[in-house]
Design a protein around this nucleic acid. Sequence first.
DNA 1: CTTGTATCCTTCGTATACTAACTATTGCCG
DNA 2: CGGCAATAGTTAGTATACGAAGGATACAAG
Lengths: 163, 163
Amino acid sequence: MTTRHPPEHYARPENSIGYLSRIVFRTFSRVLERRTMEHGVSAGQWRFLRQLWVEDGLTQRELSDKVGMREPTTVVALRSLEAAGLIRRERSVDDRRKTHIFLTDHARALETLLNPHNAEVHDIATAGLSDAEVETLKNLLRRVHANLVDEERKLPDLNDVSA
Amino acid sequence: MTTRHPPEHYARPENSIGYLSRIVFRTFSRVLERRTMEHGVSAGQWRFLRQLWVEDGLTQRELSDKVGMREPTTVVALRSLEAAGLIRRERSVDDRRKTHIFLTDHARALETLLNPHNAEVHDIATAGLSDAEVETLKNLLRRVHANLVDEERKLPDLNDVSA
DNA sequence: CTTGTATCCTTCGTATACTAACTATTGCCG
DNA sequence: CGGCAATAGTTAGTATACGAAGGATACAAG
């Protein structure tokens, strides 16, 4: 099978989507964290808070999916958020396997403080790009992600190989 | 100062470039690692090998810059590559602070095995995108990264605040 | 030549993230 | 009811990544 470009093309990291998305993610995250840390919020905590500001009361599974993390990562992140007094966990009554996550008042108060920093970093990141280009970038990233998620779904878990 | 979008816009992760680049990076990395691990190469090792296949003999500092990692990360990655017999370190004669990194024959042999997997994952990731769209995506990511790097350069190190 | 400063790499401590395997609970089906 | 597969969350172990600080070497200015 032939590929879109010969394998040598991707030898240069700057032609690689994996590389480019990684360095954008890392630099974005560092620049934003510099701001959120002034309010005592780390990058990892921020990612979960942002989702919870949209809607809290979610179970850990739902939260993991929305934030784009696997569950063990969520467990650790929530432990840190709970220790910081930013969330409260509540065992579900009708299904005792589930835990619902709720924001504390302190966490709610942070929303209006932290969101502007995020908007500011977005402005910095997209300086010189038109609104249309920003939309294009986001749409292309969404499409690439969807493709990769499809691929992951197709693959069997490594453990349930029946042979 | 007003921002391109009101802060609430970025409340939804799917509007956030930080979020989108993170999930693209992570899924890309997982899908690729599934393939490279069959040859005993982890995602972290792969990132450094790819750069070294382009050119070895670099110092650790140069390598860190090209791979887009900070130096402590490079130290750990190189330790793992050395333990796996994939690289060799050589102290510079003219400047004994520097260490040059060279690939072993084994590592060189891996190039033709691993690069096709990378090209394949790129094809999967960009399914349904035209060649022009792929170029657009990469260019936009490069521009965003350049903006964020500029911002990081502008900021003083947190420690050399003279006050 | 010696003293200060810059550079290169390392160590230390911590955060972020995952896979695999485990526990507890639920729901299904006979 | 009784077993058993599925689901929710956790634990264990490891990899990846970084900021801050430290040690060694080099270099420039006096």
